[in-house]
Structures are given as structure tokens and as C-alpha cells.
Design a binder for these strands. Structure first.
Lengths: 240, 240
DNA sequence: TCCTAAGATTGGCATAGACCAATCGCAGTG
DNA sequence: CACTGCGATTGGTCTATGCCAATCTTAGGA
């Protein structure tokens, strides 16, 4: 994938190539030799082996479980992200989406949230925190802030099946346009726990601001996606 | 940024927090203590210090130069990506874009390129490889493939100022819609050389397929963006 | 004044080894 | 037969150390 050539390739990088060759064609889930075995086989230290393997894990080529071993990872899932909801996006592609509700409360907006939603600091907002799953595996940690308090929100959310559906069908709030900001980040302890990934794993952090047809902000969301297991597709047509 | 909490925080992660506090409020470019000094100050090994600093570099908070030192990095640049060209995208925000032409040739399509462009394998394609700069700093490595051979392409490209402008004005090819695929990757030796980043740095790899109004592919591009210095914004309006 | 060479400093790469933590298999026990 | 507990295995973290490579400073010489 990356442009090759070698202005002095470090040893751990060469090892990555070796291991890639080793796993080419193997079934996902197949265990590869232990770190100690690889160190001996390639006449190097376990530290160097670990650096090579760590990068392959970060790239989504390998996975590992402490006490168990290191194995070939399944290929990345492609997730099409449109201006519709996460659930619809996933179902469109025949993927089974799911959500775990972590928290749902009404609180006062801090300065960051209020600034994005165009509210006064301290204004009432609804905070919705969820883990998003696709095909049973955790894909993203998502925190959404909505202006004000929504009556019977929890049950309506469950009934409608998705946030955007609930907003539109129950509260008459329609999302007309969204603005996504995408950047990279590395997993910290919190992400490790919530997404079941390892420390330092690359993440895609997406901030989304959704507005109604009249330009009023209706949602501000921070989503943390696993970078090792997923890729995103966005389609844009002319005449926008 | 990342959800905090600590299901057992490793030492190097605590060190990251310490260093972040250390650099809070410092001007970009300010040198921080050397790795050996930090190791002694926090009673740890240089290896651990390096792991902490490496992640901060990957996150775009610090930069480092061998033989010189480690310094506070300037904040990320926000780049708005639309379906127009790189140059227009940048200029829209008052940023100064630039390009370095690395290669421009006519060649035969391999199976990957031909598949995306809907051509037969071995068909003639134009390959355009460039480094994209914003405010003088390298942002992306971009390789674009276009079907067929374009007459006087190099001079027309220079004259028009951007690829999309040249296609539209000179060749009458208009891009009607694009499909971007975004995923993460880690920098290898080639990326290090071309973008001036360090090994293992997080990258955003974007594949773009552009089509004309009649649905004919007119461009397939692979762009490798630095994840430590830039973030992207995409806007989508309803009614697409 | 300008260039060069040497040395000190700083980050880059790699080694060897220690101990911890999670997992798995197996022997022993109820 | 099911359960428990121990030990071996495997990845996770950290230390201590060495040498290499790039940079900067300084002293010396043309």
C-alpha cells in the first residue's frame, strides 16, 4: 500500500515485510509464531519483533490477545457514511448494526458544546452516549449532544430504531445538512476499555454538526472509530 | 480528547499527561527537555520516555529532529475537502496551496487501476504523481490515474492551475460526482521521505473515484495525507 | 573573513533481560 | 463428572545500556 523504496529501512520494518509474507494467504484467526519464537527465528530481540507486530496490529493486519497469541486479522469492513444515520448507513450495505446505550441524561452544556450548538453556556442539553457495533464487533464510541430536553426520549429512541428517525418522526426535527470533521488520534485507556482495542491504536475521530433546513444546529456528535477495522466511504454529487 | 478514566494506566501514558501539562501554553517551536533529561526527571528509562513522546508526535502535539531536539508542534490545519480540486479547496479557506510534480507519464494500466477506471488491463492511462503542500508544508502524496492520453497535458495543467480546471476547460471533462474512501495507515520509508514525517506516523489514505455526469470514471486517485498535521471537513446537504 | 574539522549533544535503532497479567490445559479433588 | 487450583505459555510493560546518525558549536587554519 505505502509507496515502497528504502532510504535505509530499519530492521523492524524489514521484519514487518517478513511477517506479511508469512501470513499471506492464511485464514483470519490463524495463530502466528510467538514473539519469542519470531525473535529467535529472525535473530533479533523481542523488542524489535514487538515493534513490527505492533504496527501490523495498528494497520489491522494482525490481532493479539494476552495469554493466547497473535493471529491473522479479518479484513477491514467498509462503512458507507452518508448524512443519514449510522443504523441506516449500515443496513444499506447489508451489515447488522447494533448499539449499546451507555448513558442518556439531560445536563447543562459546557462551553465547547454550547459553542457548537449555538446555545448559551449552561443551557439544557440532552447527552446520548453509545457504543456502535457492526456485525457484533465494537466500531465506534459516540457521544451526541442535542439542544434542550426531549420528552420520553429513551423510549422513542428505542421505538424509532435510530436517532435521526426519532428526531424526524416524533419531534419533527429534520436534518438538512451535516458537516463532518475527520482527524486521527491514538487510543487511550478509555478507548481501550470501550472498544476493546489496544493502547496507541489509530482512531478516526469524527465530529459531526447537523443542522435543520433553517440552519439551526440540531445535533453535535463526537464519534471515535476504530481505524484498524474499518474504512469509510462518502459520496458527493455535483450541484450541491 | 479521548475519554479518560484509567483501567490501569501504563507508566508511559502517565508520562504523556505530564508532558502535555509541561507544554500547555508554550509557543510552537519551543524545545522541551531532552529524552535523557526527562528520563531522569521522572525516574524512568529513556525507552519509556520515547514511547510517550512518540505518541505525542503521532498525535501532532510534538515534533522532533534528530540531533536538534523535541519541540512543541503548531496546531493542526483544517482542510475542507469538497468535490472540487485540492487547490480550490485550499484557496477557499485562504490557505496557500502548492504542488511539486514528481512524475507525469503515460503508461499501461495494471489490474487495480483498470478495474477502478473500468478499462481493460493494459489500456493506456495517464499517471500524475504529486506532493501537495499547504502553507509551504507537505500535506499529501497523491497519485492520480486518468484514462487515455491527454494532449499537451503538462502545459495545460500548469496553465489551468488545477487538475479539475484543466480537465474541464481544456478537455471538456467535467466531474459530476466523487466517491472517497478513507482509512488509516502507518508511514513507511517512502512516506517518510516524501512527506518529511517519521516512521510509523498515522496517515489518512483517501482513494477517490471521480465520474462524469454520464457515470464514466474520469479519475482514480490515491492520496496519502499526514494525520498529524491536518484534519478534514466534508459538508453534505440533503436532497442528494 | 571564511571554510573545515573535531567534539559534544540529541534523537534513532536495537539488544538482553526482568517481572507482571491473562489464558489455557491438566492434574487432583470433591 | 464437575470444579478447583496450579503451572506453563504468551503477550504487556519497563529497565538499563550500547552504538549509530544528524545537528550544532567551537576551535583552528587557510
Amino acid at each position: 500500500m505505502s509507496p515502497e523504496a528504502a532510504p535505509a529501512a530499519p530492521k523492524y520494518y524489514l521484519l514487518k515485510t517478513e511477517v506479511l509474507a508469512l501470513i499471506a494467504g492464511l485464514q483470519p484467526g490463524t495463530l502466528i509464531p510467538t514473539e519469542r519464537a519470531l525473535a529467535e527465528k529472525y535473530s533479533t530481540s523481542r523488542t524489535t519483533v514487538r515493534q513490527a507486530i505492533s504496527e501490523l496490529v495498528a494497520e489491522g493486519r494482525l490481532g493479539r490477545i494476552q495469554g493466547h497469541g497473535t493471529f491473522v486479522a479479518p479484513p477491514k469492513v467498509t462503512h458507507v457514511r452518508q448524512l443519514t444515520s449510522f443504523s441506516d448507513d449500515a443496513r444499506t450495505q447489508g451489515l447488522r448494526p447494533a448499539s449499546t446505550l451507555i448513558a442518556l441524561d439531560v445536563m447543562k452544556a459546557d462551553n465547547v458544546v454550547s459553542a457548537h450548538l449555538g446555545l448559551d453556556e449552561g443551557a439544557q442539553v440532552t447527552r446520548l452516549e453509545r457504543i456502535r457495533l457492526i456485525e457484533g464487533e465494537p466500531l465506534a464510541h459516540e457521544v451526541a449532544w442535542l439542544p434542550g430536553k426531549l420528552a420520553r426520549f429513551k423510549s422513542n429512541l428505542t421505538k424509532a430504531g435510530s436517532l435521526y428517525a426519532a428526531l424526524a418522526d416524533v419531534y419533527g426535527i429534520r436534518v438538512a445538512d451535516v458537516e463532518d470533521t475527520v482527524e486521527t488520534a491514538l487510543a487511550g485507556p478509555g478507548d481501550v476499555q470501550l472498544l476493546g482495542i489496544e493502547m496507541g491504536a489509530p482512531l478516526l475521530v469524527v465530529h459531526r454538526l447537523a443542522r435543520s433546513a433553517t440552519g439551526v444546529p440540531v445535533e453535535w456528535t463526537r464519534s471515535t472509530f476504530r481505524g484498524d477495522r474499518f474504512r469509510f466511504v462518502s459520496r458527493v454529487k455535483s450541484g450541491e
